[in-house]
Design a protein around this nucleic acid. Sequence first.
DNA 1: GTGAAAGCGCTAACAT
DNA 2: ATGTTAGCGCTTTCAC
Lengths: 345, 345
Amino acid sequence: MMNMTSPAVQAPRGGPVTRKDVARYAGVSTAVVSYVVNGGPKNVAPATEAKVQNAIRVLGYRPNAAARALKLGSTETIGLVIPDNGNPFFSLLAHAVEDAAAELGYALLLTNSDGNLAKERRNIRNLAARQVDGVLLSSVLMEPDLAELESADIPAVLLNHSADAPGFNSVGVDLTGSARSVVEHLISHGHTRIALAMGTNTGGFLDGREQGWLQALTEAGLPEGPIVRSPFTREGGYIAGRRLLASADKPTAIFASSDLQAVGILRALHEAGVSIPDDIAIASFDGSAEAEYSWPPLTTVVQPAEAMAEAAVSALIGAQRNRESEHLIFPAELQVRRSCGCKGN
Amino acid sequence: MMNMTSPAVQAPRGGPVTRKDVARYAGVSTAVVSYVVNGGPKNVAPATEAKVQNAIRVLGYRPNAAARALKLGSTETIGLVIPDNGNPFFSLLAHAVEDAAAELGYALLLTNSDGNLAKERRNIRNLAARQVDGVLLSSVLMEPDLAELESADIPAVLLNHSADAPGFNSVGVDLTGSARSVVEHLISHGHTRIALAMGTNTGGFLDGREQGWLQALTEAGLPEGPIVRSPFTREGGYIAGRRLLASADKPTAIFASSDLQAVGILRALHEAGVSIPDDIAIASFDGSAEAEYSWPPLTTVVQPAEAMAEAAVSALIGAQRNRESEHLIFPAELQVRRSCGCKGN
DNA sequence: GTGAAAGCGCTAACAT
DNA sequence: ATGTTAGCGCTTTCAC
């Protein structure tokens, strides 16, 4: 008697338990089982519902998502394509996307493109083949492969994308304005030779961060500092740092286009025995956790990853096919720490 | 003529193109289309194949994975449950798992449990409901919720798990041996008061890292240094660092159970003006990229994430239901950098 | 070498 | 309130 309710009593037949088994066991039709499982579209008498629930428990029934997906044409899954979840900003973003999606009952298929166009394309194609309900694309490219997305014919929104892409929803951060605010902050510390360590973006467009840096300098009547271009990585930053140290007009402050690069620059400066922020001040972009624990802690512009992820997911899920495409631009907030020369924190 | 081959010529009917449309267009049966798409199980005459391929291209046909999954009973998808992909070690692991899975044609459903048992459970259940072909579980718990996995009745392998779990395949790293080798290295620098900053694991078991630290100390005839327990995070490390600095028997070296904690400790020491490695040396565990770019760079034991991911994925995919469970333990390699007192790198 | 057809598990419109 | 049933798009056995 007692072990009648034990979960050990499993599938009576060989294979997995289906809705049919449940129906038979509960003595109802398969439709009723569906009504119970899905909470509709018809209602079921309380007594019947109890019988069904019991049958489900006893048999250990689990709905088959593949069948449901086939029938409904929706997998309740979204795909995310990012360059590299080893980059703390992207891992933060991915985590936020997962949470936002889970909130709506969607699961997340994660793919890394490794900043590689061919792989990005392959990932998108693969996601499309898997009938994801939408894809969130965070491309390294300024001009991501929209054609691939279009022909895949699944809703997509460009994430972490600040330039308008006609025909696509996008959410990004105000690169130019944020960069300006950091550089202005550096200027307020009295710096006049402010370098830019810029990540290498594919595509011919001028990155907003570069524009913002330039604007701040120009408006302050300052000369354009040196620019070094290298990958958006720690190693890229390290290389940039060494180059900047070796350059003729060595800057007194550096603005790095990502926290990761700043971390690399930090290493180069430390190795050279340069004191930060006294000899050279640094500020960067992203606001990842790593920036808070570097030495010295980095002044950085923090991107609102959670907010952007939520916006992107809801734009994706709620996407009406024939609606005007939206371009959401979020502000980023200056987070002052020691690396710029400020005392606090 | 020229635009006949243009991809603009899309779906002739309203909805998405199905195998049936392709068959009709190519003037063959749906079976043949399947043979062509799947490269079997029957062969097709070259001429016919060409017609089909052409129809596929012209119509922009994309196979429906949900239907395939329903028919075949396999989604070619695996689920991964990790505590937090914001932790660089786990993001590295996740990336490696994705690559290993993709290699075999599997996609990755990523979920974070945030070190939360309820969420871990929910994630597993959710993955099971989605008919993943298997799940890779990297639990924070020493005793993960195996019952949940068992009742889900999908193959699973415990990833990043060093204790044997009867009935489950597992892959992990040799915690004890690796910890010993780092601590021995610290000892070789002449340290005699070596503290342990241990992450807090749920579950009553003694962590291998703690054992290894103890063994090295004991074998060298050294007294057991202080232990501080705090979360496996940067902040946890920071707290541990401050506590260690304040303690009566301040150590001259610290072994941290994760790179993240070491990074936090570094911050605490820097803030206190302690010189590393001169006043206090540090070594840690994981071998994440962050350890290479901290200041000073961290001596750490690097876990073979790629190899473990590959092993886990192939154990999962190739899992025979009724096979003996295997427990794969990988060695980790000491990576010497500056934080322990060595000069190089 | 090719085709017809059964059926994977589920949903929901349409009976009753 | 409950039951019947037609498919969703695909694979594959079994005919031809």
